[in-house]
Design a protein around this nucleic acid. Structure first.
Length: 455
RNA sequence: GGCGCGGUAGCCAAGUGGUAAGGCCGAGGUCUGCAAAACCUCUAUGCGCCGGUUCAAUUCCGGCCCGCGCCUCCA
C-alpha cells in the first residue's frame, strides 16, 4: 500500500519511495535546538515524523530506512543561554539533549538512525561554505562573516513562494550591516568575543574564526550522512521559510543536484488559539502534563488526534479525551489476547494513514472496529496498527507518585471499615482521601490508590 | 499589504456531489454496599453566512463574515 504524503514544493500528494538503487529510504527531519525544554508543540512534529518513520519501516523494512534527526547545539539561542547562565555551551546543550531524549523515549518515538550535532559537523559545514565561495554563491563580508548570495540562485523562493510575496521591507532593512543584499543569509558568522565567549572554530579558507550560521548545518549533516540527494526532508511549517528555503539554496548550489525529492511540513500546535512558542512562554512541556497526572502516551495520542497538516488546538479536555480513549484501547487489547483472525479488517486504518497521514481518520477507523467487538479480530494485526501509531498500551498509565503515609493510613482504615460493613464510616473516609487529592479504587481482594487528576 | 490554512454536534475531530466516521462529555441500563472499572444503548434533518451550478451540495463555483499561521527567533 503506497504511502502518499503532501509535498510542499509541488503542493500535491506524492508517493514516498526510495529514489536510489540501493532501496534505502533517506529521511532527514530537522530536530530541536537544545537550549531549553522542548514543548509539546515541538513534539507534535517529532511524533508525526515518528509515525512517518514507522510507516516507512512497515513498507520497506527497518533496515532500509535511514532516519536522521539533528540536534542544533550551536546558534544564537544556545550561545545566549550559555552566556546567561555563565556556563560552557557544551554543558547547556548536553543537559537539554538528555532531557529531550527522555521525553522522546516517554513518547515512544523511535531513535533516529543517526542524530548528528551541529558542533560535530563543523568541518563538513566549512567545506560546503568553501565550495559555495569557490562557485561564486557566497562571499566574505567586511566583518569576516560569509553570506550566501541569493542572486546567484535563480530557484530561490520556490518552496515558500517568496517571490510572489510583497515583503515587509522595513522589518529587516536595519539588519543590512555587511551584506551585499538584505536578503542574503549568513553561512558563517564572524567571531565576536563579547557575544560568543569561547565558542569559535577556524573558518573557511581566507575567512577568520567564527561559527556556522544556522541553515548550513542541516545541509552539511544531510549531505554527510545521507548523500547529496535525499528522499524526504521534514520539519514544522515554521521552518519552511527561511530555513528550508535556504537549505535548498545551499545544498543545490554546492552539490549541483536536487536536494530533496519530497518536502513535508507539519502544522503548529496551538494553545488558547495561538501558537505555542518558547518566546511567548505559553507552552506546555511533557513534564508539565505528567505533573498533572496525565500519561505520556495520552500526550502522544492527543498530538495525533488532529490532522498533521492542520493546526491543532491543545487543551486539557483533549488530554482527558486521549486518556479515556487509550483506556478503551487498552481493555480492548486485553480482550484480544493472542487470538488469530482476520487481519484485513484493519486495512481502513492503514488506508487512512497512507492517505497523507490522516491520523484522526485512522483513529476513527480503529474505533469503528473496536466498537464491533473483538470477535474474529487478529491480535497481531491490531498490534501492527498500534506500532504504526506508536501507541504503547502496556506502559503504566501515569507515574505512580509516592503515597503519603497519612493517605495510606486513611485507606487502611477505610478498607477495614468496609470489611466490617460499616459503610457510613467507609464513605466518610473515601471523602477524606479525595480531599487529600487521592482516589481509592476498590477491587474484590484489595484496593489501590491513585493521585486524583488535577485541573 | 502579500502568501497560506481553517470554520462540521456541549468540546475535539474525519469525511463525501446522493443525504453526516470516531473520541470526550452527557443520559439510560447491566454489574456493584458506595465510588471506580468493564460492557450495552441513546445523543447533528445538520456541516460559518448569502447567492449560483446541479435531478441532488456540507461536499463544486462566486461573494461575504470570523479565526489562525507565515512574511528572516521559532517544531
Amino acid at each position: 500500500m503506497a504511502l502518499r504524503l503532501f509535498e510542499s514544493l509541488s503542493r500535491e500528494l506524492r508517493e514516498l519511495k526510495p529514489s536510489q538503487p540501493d532501496g534505502v529510504f533517506r529521511f532527514y527531519n530537522c530536530g530541536p535546538t537544545v537550549y531549553a525544554p522542548a514543548h509539546i508543540g515541538n513534539f507534535r512534529t517529532f511524533v508525526v515524523n515518528d509515525v512517518i518513520r514507522r510507516l516507512l519501516e512497515l513498507e520497506y523494512g527497518a533496515a532500509k530506512v535511514k532516519h536522521v534527526r539533528n540536534l542544533t547545539d550551536v546558534d544564537d539561542r544556545t550561545i545566549g543561554q550559555a552566556k546567561k547562565e555563565g556556563r560552557p555551551l557544551g554543558e547547556i546543550t548536553k543537559h537539554w539533549t538528555a532531557l529531550f531524549h527522555e521525553d522522546c523515549a516517554a513518547l515512544n518515538c523511535l531513535r533516529p538512525t543517526a542524530e548528528p550535532t551541529a558542533t560535530g559537523y563543523i568541518k563538513e559545514q566549512v567545506n560546503m561554505i568553501e565550495v559555495l565561495m569557490e562557485k561564486g554563491h557566497a562571499y566574505r563580508a567586511a566583518d569576516g562573516s560569509v553570506y550566501f548570495k541569493l542572486d546567484s540562485f535563480p530557484g530561490y523562493g520556490g518552496l515558500s513562494r517568496i517571490k510572489e510575496r510583497e515583503l515587509k521591507v522595513t522589518v529587516f532593512a536595519a539588519d543590512a550591516d555587511h551584506k551585499d543584499s538584505v536578503s542574503d543569509f549568513a553561512l558563517w558568522k564572524a567571531y565576536k568575543p563579547e557575544e560568543d565567549g569561547s565558542v569559535k572554530w577556524s573558518g573557511p579558507g581566507g575567512v577568520g574564526e567564527g561559527r556556522p550560521g544556522w541553515h548550513i548545518e542541516c545541509s552539511a549533516m544531510s549531505k554527510s550522512i545521507l548523500g547529496d540527494t535525499i528522499d524526504l526532508h521534514t520539519g514544522g511549517v515554521d521552518l519552511l521559510f527561511p530555513h528550508h528555503e535556504n537549505e535548498i539554496a545551499q545544498s543545490q548550489c554546492c552539490n549541483g543536484t536536487t536536494f530533496a525529492h519530497h518536502w513535508y511540513h507539519s502544522e503548529h500546535l496551538l494553545v488558547n488559539g495561538t501558537t505555542m512558542s518558547k518566546s511567548k512562554g505559553n507552552y506546555y512541556t511533557l513534564r508539565d502534563l505528567l505533573a498533572k497526572g496525565y500519561s505520556a502516551m495520552a500526550v502522544r495520542y492527543a498530538l495525533l488526534s488532529g490532522h498533521p497538516r492542520k493546526q491543532l488546538n491543545f487543551t486539557l479536555d483533549g488530554m482527558h479525551a486521549a486518556e479515556s480513549a487509550l483506556k478503551t484501547l487498552r481493555s480492548f487489547r486485553a480482550a484480544l489476547g493472542s487470538q488469530g483472525g482476520d487481519a484485513t479488517v484493519f486495512d481502513p486504518v492503514f488506508a487512512a494513514l497512507h492517505d497523507d497521514l490522516n491520523t484522526p481518520g485512522a483513529l476513527g477507523a480503529l474505533f469503528t472496529l473496536v466498537n464491533r467487538g473483538p470477535a474474529g479480530l487478529d491480535a497481531a494485526a491490531f498490534d501492527r496498527v498500534l506500532f504504526a501509531l506508536g501507541l504503547k498500551l502496556d506502559v503504566a498509565e501515569a507515574p505512580k507518585a509516592d503515597i503519603p503515609a497519612a493517605v495510606a493510613a486513611l485507606a487502611e482504615k477505610r478498607w477495614a471499615a468496609k470489611q466490617a460493613k460499616d459503610f457510613a464510616a467507609a464513605d466518610a473516609l473515601r471523602k477524606e482521601i479525595a480531599a487529600a487529592g487521592w482516589t481509592m479504587l476498590d477491587r474484590k481482594d484489595g484496593y489501590s490508590l491513585e493521585p486524583a487528576k488535577k485541573p
